[in-house]
Nucleic acid binder design. Structure first.
Length: 752
DNA sequence: GTGCCTCGAGTTCC
DNA sequence: CTCGAGGCAC
């Protein structure tokens, strides 16, 4: 949407924007400000502008991928590239060797090497209320099977607002430093980390691997001095210490990092040849002995009450600490117990971050806009007069749905004391979880007398179809389905997204362009794979298009071809069927194994009277064999099953799917690799009393090894683990001839 | 039927 | 990151 409309206006905006923000683009471009008439440019002017554009785009590219630089919106970026392409067309001789048109988008951090973490860098679950802390304590006890009066210690330490860094030492020598990245893969910043004085380059007497983790941050005083320097050197000051630290660590030239006053607190570790200690607190002490800075406010506490008391104490000292913190982290002190508890998908079970109340700011709500999502959901978004909240400029805030605007939550109870939100209102904004901007409060006294309650649209703003709300559903949805352009485009974006087809060179921005392209349109997924054929017979080839060069066009086609072979689960997820996400797609693909078997099953199910009567009760569906197979998959229920079958029933959507599949080679889903663990793919039932593990623990471990844990014994059960006191289940297992183990036998099988 | 827990969907800013 | 919905265990 952003690009092809109104080039003139956009270009005008760029010059104002970039000229102001970066100090670039002033002077030589002023002549083009009113109306950039290219034919009137002299070659010298054009060359100067091309040079300027190359610089601006390189700044923009960098800004897009680093946290410290100013932000440039997509429309501006697109317009910059268009202007560049236009100039290059008019003055081909002046095309620069570093021409921005030779690159599609920005190179993804090509400048830093990637590092795959030996041990994943997790994030933390959050808590906001005191009650959450007692609940955390209870959860830990329950998981470990400890009575509520058993002694249990936790550590409490300030949560530093910086960026996490992991330092790898081999035989005492610092060999690698990496940022967190997505937790799996980070960036190699070794040279930069070595310039930080708090980071020891050698650890005496530490043979083998020692991986120390902690937070890089900038103290308030250093930040103020740095910003003074930035200003005096005519550079843009940093918005906050966190951004300054992030920007400083990610400098290409280590000499610049060295000149920046970065500090480091160690608080955790990754891979270790030998353990540091047997408690969290002990490990911190050990890290301090090894020469690391550790936070002096780290304390061992023996009850939730003591944790909260320490939280209050830290909160009171917050302003005088000299560095930014955004909460207090609690960790289970006993390390063997930490190991027993393990991890959820992205967070450890044995730690929690108690966050300080979010910063809030008042601003004006200029308008309410309705966005249409891929499932047709109409989502209201508040356009705000930009305001700084917690060091970041916020100009949009989510309004969830029509009830939220009206002052009610999903259960019908009041939020914001029942105050509704109207266009023009003064609203208080906070960033939930320090990220998502939301409306905390409305100042009704300041409301204009003529302001009317917001009328939520009953029709799709994009295609005009009825927007309907199912009973009991919080969202209103466009009923246009396949005919709604907004939905179609969002579905395409989902299709090329991560976890689905993930096509290199074809992201959301490119989808928006191709969607409105007259010569090479992409309106449905199959057209992505016919793009190459269509381009071949096209006079206005992609390679000659604005924003593309021969090389970038070729790269795009290579990216598309690479995905013509696609794993079944990616295809299933990419189709964007309601209720079928990444996890469900994987489960289903794994169950059916190959695409034709799956589609045959869907066809069969669509013929079932139970489906044609649109009955969705599980009881009715389970009676039909075709549905029974779907519903037998762990994690698939009646809603998901009907949604799937409906998508594959003959009709427009199915035609689209078939057209797509005819372009693809769909890879069968490999059965669970049973060689990796002795219980992979097996169904296990636990019964009786377990003495060495709790139920939750046993289940989590078995699942981690690829087993499915069930509650009752059936013909599908492979292994029964029976502790003392096992009754009917053991008997039934014996009758069915199922392998039965005691707890020790089980532990032996899975290797401890 | 109720209460967890996980997943899906939507959103913002970088 | 959060909320709601779906799935499942109790």
């Amino acid at each position: 949407m952003s690009a092809r409309r109104g080039l003139d206006v956009s270009v005008l905006r760029i010059y104002l924007f970039l000229g102001f923000e970066t100090g670039f683009g002033r002077g030589q471009n002023m002549g083009t400000k009113d109306k950039p008439d290219i034919s009137a440019l002299t070659p010298a002017q054009a060359a100067a502008e091309l040079e300027s554009l190359a610089r601006q785009l390189s700044v923009a590219n960098e800004a897009y991928h680093t946290l410290d630089a100013p932000q440039i919106d997509d429309a501006t970026y697109d317009a910059l590239k268009s202007r560049n392409a236009l100039l290059e067309k008019m003055f081909p001789d002046l095309k620069r060797p570093d021409s921005p048109s030779e690159q599609v988008g920005a190179p993804v951090n090509e400048t830093f090497g990637k590092v795959t973490h030996a041990v994943r860098m997790m994030s933390l679950a959050n808590a906001f209320e005191d009650d959450d802390i007692s609940e955390f304590d209870e959860r830990v006890r329950k998981y470990l099977g400890l009575p509520s009066d058993a002694a249990l210690s936790f550590t409490a330490e300030p949560k530093i607002d910086g960026l996490s860094l992991t330092l790898r030492y081999e035989d005492g020598q610092l060999t690698q430093a990496a940022t967190r990245g997505d937790g799996e893969v980070g960036e190699d910043v070794t040279a930069n980390a070595k310039t930080i004085t708090d980071v020891p380059s050698y650890l005496a007497g530490m043979d083998g691997i020692v991986e120390v983790r902690g937070e890089v941050y900038m103290a308030h005083s250093d930040f103020a001095a740095l910003n003074a320097r930035q200003t005096s050197e005519n550079r843009k000051p940093f918005a906050n210490p966190r951004n300054a630290a992030a920007g400083s660590l990610r400098q290409l030239d280590p000499a610049i990092t060295q000149s920046r006053p970065l500090r480091f607190f160690a608080y955790s570790w990754g891979e270790l040849t030998t353990p540091l200690a047997d408690t969290q607190f002990g490990a911190i002490v050990r890290l301090s002995e090894l020469g690391f800075s550790t936070n002096p406010l780290t304390k061992r506490c023996s009850s939730p009450a003591e944790l909260i008391a320490h939280y209050r104490s830290i909160e009171q000292q917050r302003a005088t600490l000299g560095y930014d913190i955004d909460g207090v982290v609690y960790k289970l002190d006993d390390l063997p117990l930490q190991t027993r508890m393990g991890f959820r998908s992205t967070t450890p079970r044995w730690a929690i971050a108690h966050k300080f109340p979010a910063e809030k700011a008042w601003t004006r709500l200029e308008s309410i806009e309705i966005q249409v999502g891929r499932t047709g959901a109409l989502s209201p978004v508040a356009r705000l007069t930009p305001v700084t909240v917690g060091g970041v400029v916020v100009s949009n805030a989510t309004l969830h749905n029509e009830d939220y605007i009206a002052g009610k939550d999903s259960k019908g109870s009041e939020i914001r004391s029942g105050k509704d939100i109207r266009e023009g209102d003064w609203v208080q904004i906070y960033r939930a979880g320090d990220v998502i901007p939301k409306v905390a409060d409305v100042d009704v006294a300041k409301r204009d007398e003529s302001a009317l309650p917001f009328e939520f649209p009953t029709h799709c703003p994009d295609c005009g179809s009825d927007a309907l709300r199912e009973p009991g559903d919080a969202v209103r949805r466009c009923s246009g389905g396949m005919i709604c352009p907004a939905q179609a485009m969002e579905r395409l974006k989902h299709f090329v997204g991560r976890g689905a087809f993930d096509i290199e060179g074809l992201g959301a921005r490119q989808i928006e362009q191709f969607y409105v392209d007259d010569h090479l349109p992409i309106h449905e997924p199959s057209q992505i794979f016919t793009l190459g054929r269509r381009d071949a017979g096209n006079l206005t080839k992609l390679a000659n298009r604005e924003g593309y060069g021969a090389k970038s066009a070729e790269n795009l086609f290579t990216g598309i071809e690479a995905r013509r072979h696609i794993p079944m689960r990616r295809l299933l997820f990419g189709l964007g069927i309601r209720h079928v996400g990444e996890a469900a797609a994987r489960l289903i693909a794994r169950h059916y194994g190959n695409w034709s078997a799956f589609v045959a099953a869907m066809d069969l199910a669509a013929l079932e009277p139970a489906f044609q009567e649109t009955a969705t009760s599980k009881e009715v569906l389970t009676k039909s064999p075709a549905f029974a197979e779907l519903l037998a998959i762990d994690g698939v229920g009646a809603v998901m099953a009907t949604s799937l079958v409906a998508a594959f029933a003959q009709g427009n959507e199915r035609t689209l799917i078939d057209r797509l599949c005819s372009e693809l080679t769909i890879e069968d889903e490999a059965a669970v690799d049973e060689s990796q663990s002795p219980v992979a793919g097996k169904t296990v039932v636990f019964t009786g009393t377990l003495e060495k593990l709790t139920r939750a623990e046993a289940k989590a471990r078995a699942e981690a090894l690829g087993a499915k844990v069930s509650g009752s014994v059936s013909a599908k059960t492979n292994i029964l683990v029976a502790g003392p006191g096992a009754g009917s289940k053991a008997k039934k297992a014996a009758e069915l001839g199922i392998e039965t183990l005691d707890e020790d036998g089980w532990l032996e099988l899975i290797g401890g």
